[in-house]
């Protein structure tokens, strides 16, 4: 029982990061119908930023907020340089564009920095644990859970209570009608990228605190987890993306701890198998994007 509680907290820690990544991907998919395979590049750029800032003597207290700003800027620049030009193009064209950005950014780092991974220090408290009775809780997991909660609540407030949020949701439901209401395409899409950048930035902080390294492919794994989580949740559903992220994190942790010794490396394979099964039974993902029949 104690063990299970610990695993659940561990899983929520992982899942929280996945949820933030998936939510950013779902927000972009909502307004543009683009599955953004370049989302991981926000993490890559954040990773190098952290590395360089550490090299210049800054610490995590400075680096963490900077990472968010850098992720937002990167998201806005990618939108402006690449996605703006294929807006309204067939979904496949946009998908290819996002792959293009993904490989281009990766290649730029290989060419102008190095193909090698570089290390930077992880925060000292990352392996600290708190003991409560028989429970030993990783401070890191608790920090991720708290940060995820705050970020998700903030995002919820933004989407439900502000005119920007209403515009974003309107554009996601029916883009042309949103434009007829006076919503500016450029603005709402840029806003979606800013939001996805903030979410990726918060995720990046914790991802990088744990990994402690920067490399051209640093964003690949977080991007894959984010896309997977968004697919599990049902692309286009924002709450689905969050649920998908949490589910993915929990399943991973529960699998790792249950697989017999030496087979933990199979976790990712088994996760993919489970996802394939999910899509056999629920092709629309966990949450169906419900469109009430128009009368």
């Amino acid at each position: 029982m104690i063990e299970l509680i610990q695993q659940i907290i561990d899983g929520l820690g992982r899942g929280g990061i996945y949820a933030l990544l998936a939510l950013g991907i779902a927000v972009i998919f909502g307004v543009m119908h683009l599955i953004n395979f370049a989302h991981g590049e926000l993490i890559t750029v954040s990773a190098y930023t952290s590395y360089w800032l550490f090299a210049s003597g800054f610490n995590w207290w400075f680096i963490a907020p900077t990472v968010i700003v850098v992720a937002v800027l990167t998201a806005v620049i990618i939108e402006f340089v690449a996605f703006r030009w294929v807006r309204g193009a067939p979904d496949f064209t946009m998908l290819m564009t996002s792959f293009g950005v993904h490989f281009l950014v990766q290649a730029l780092f290989v060419m102008y920095v190095s193909a090698n991974f570089r290390q930077f220090p992880r925060p000292g408290w990352i392996f600290d644990t708190w003991r409560i009775g028989d429970l030993s809780l990783e401070v890191f997991d608790l920090a991720v859970i708290a940060a995820t909660l705050v970020t998700l609540l903030g995002t919820y407030w933004l989407l439900q209570r502000t005119m920007f949020g209403v515009s974003l949701r309107a554009a996601a439901e029916d883009f042309d009608t949103a434009r007829l209401m006076g919503i500016r395409s450029n603005r709402v899409i840029r806003g979606a990228f800013v939001l996805s950048g903030v979410l990726a930035g918060v995720a990046a902080i914790f991802w990088l605190m744990r990994s402690g390294q920067a490399g051209p492919t640093a964003g690949l794994n977080p991007m894959l987890k984010g896309v997977l989580a968004a697919l599990i949740g049902g692309l286009g559903s924002l709450s689905g993306a969050v649920l998908g992220g949490i589910t993915l994190g929990l399943v991973e942790v529960l699998l790792i701890s249950r697989l017999p010794g030496g087979t933990a490396g199979l976790t990712d394979g088994i996760v993919f198998l489970l996802i394939a099964l999910l899509f056999v039974f629920r092709p629309q993902g966990l949450i169906t994007v419900r469109r009430v029949e128009r009368v």
């Binding site: 209403v166 949701r169 309107a170 439901e173 029916d174 042309d176 009608t177 007829l180 009430v292 128009r294």
Partner: peptide, 10 residues
Amino acid sequence: PEHRRIFSDF
């Protein structure tokens, strides 16, 4: 617009 195009999730 034709067919009203109400935001049905709203």
